[in-house]
Write a protein that binds this DNA or RNA. Sequence first.
RNA 1: GUGGCCGUAGCUCAGUUGGUUAGAGCGCCAGGUUGUGGCCCUGGAGGUCGGGGGUUCAAGUCCCCUCGGUCACCCCA
Length: 422
Amino acid sequence: MVRAPKGTHDVLWPASSRWEALVAAFAGRARRAGFGLTITPMFEDARLFRRGIGGQSDVVNKEMYEFTDRDNRPLALRPEGTAPVVRAFVQHHPPVPWKAWYVTPAFRYEQPQAGRYRQHHQLGVEVLGTEDPDLDVEVIALAAGFYADLGLREIDLAVNSMGCAEDRPRYIAALSEFLAEHASELCDEHSERYGVNPLRVLDCKRPECRAVTELAPRLVDFLDEACAAHLARVRSGLDALGIVHRLEPRLVRGLDYYTRTTFEFSATALETAQNAVGGGGRYDGLAEAIGGDPTPGIGFGIGIERLLMACDAEGCFAALPHPPHAFVIDLTGGEQARDLVDELRRAGLTALRAYDGRSLKSQLKQADRSGARYAVMIGAEELAAGVVTVRPLREAGGEKTEQETVARPEITARLRELTGEG
RNA sequence: GUGGCCGUAGCUCAGUUGGUUAGAGCGCCAGGUUGUGGCCCUGGAGGUCGGGGGUUCAAGUCCCCUCGGUCACCCCA
């Protein structure tokens, strides 16, 4: 049997109704903050990601789905959402500040595990054209507010600053020196390889490394005046908006383009290893790195699958059913149902029907299963008399009502009245 | 890329030291009720036992390989 590729999954109805609601909630928040939906290609010139994300990152180095098309163009399925949006900005130079939101699949060749897939989906925003720290606050507040909209309470927000191009080399030098002195205390993985990318060691979760990095020099102590002031303004802004967060000097995100503000949201209710439900930061050098004018930018990505896992863990954001208004039952051959569902739908009602000329019992069973509030029955008697029978299928407001006979021309109006859709 | 655990019906699972024609519950279909759903009863459909190879008189069961799922490392959403 042909199955979905490893690490991918289907989201079938009705489970997908949660996705609809999730995206709608995010779109609403984004729209209110001045963001517009942005759609960019699912695949890009592979060089965009190499230059943008960075050649030494794992994402580019060993996780990209790369291929060449029939004209030998080097292409890659997008492993993340930021670089393509920044590319679109550079290509079209819209007026700044440019605020874009997106929802997109992302592809990474990984070993699947809880909360990690080869195709996952992200919601995100990007803003190009300003380095105002109040914007950082606004962007973080957007994500935080969205989590709250879903009913999530157990969200940890870690914030750090990666400094700028001047700060970073000074810090990396100091960190390397420190790690060299403590190399023997690091975990097996890093004791000999800390030099490749010293910042990575800060990310290591092994107790040995944690113990060492606990005492390591902190990037925040190496910030120049402007970067320090920027971070301070971001933090005071978060405080002012009541957004609880903590400074995490070891927060080093795996994509190379980050500068200054970085942040990560974790769902502490998740007991799985992958509990980061959103992350992002500033990337003031990215536009230039991919060939555009120097333009500051900031954004975040939120993983939909992990977010829903977090909602499950907290028991919030349950799927809401969408019960149909009516289920049309036709015992006379189907023409009546064909015409009536069309009429009801034109009137704005949700109308379903059965097919294949099933028995009354079978059709009523389907009507019941559909969750419809009313069955509209048309048999030989109704057809001859020019009426339909409207049968309530569930108690509305605790009140039990009897089925009634309605003149055929009146049925749409009657159903609108009964369902309160008038 | 590495390691642990697991693959039997659409779903959740049972299947004895290898031994007739592989089962249950739920779901689906039909009938009981030739025009009344849910509850109940009866019946039915549905399986290359993940795939391939091997051992054996005999393999769902044992062995090898492989694919997939799952969890973890790495890293990220």
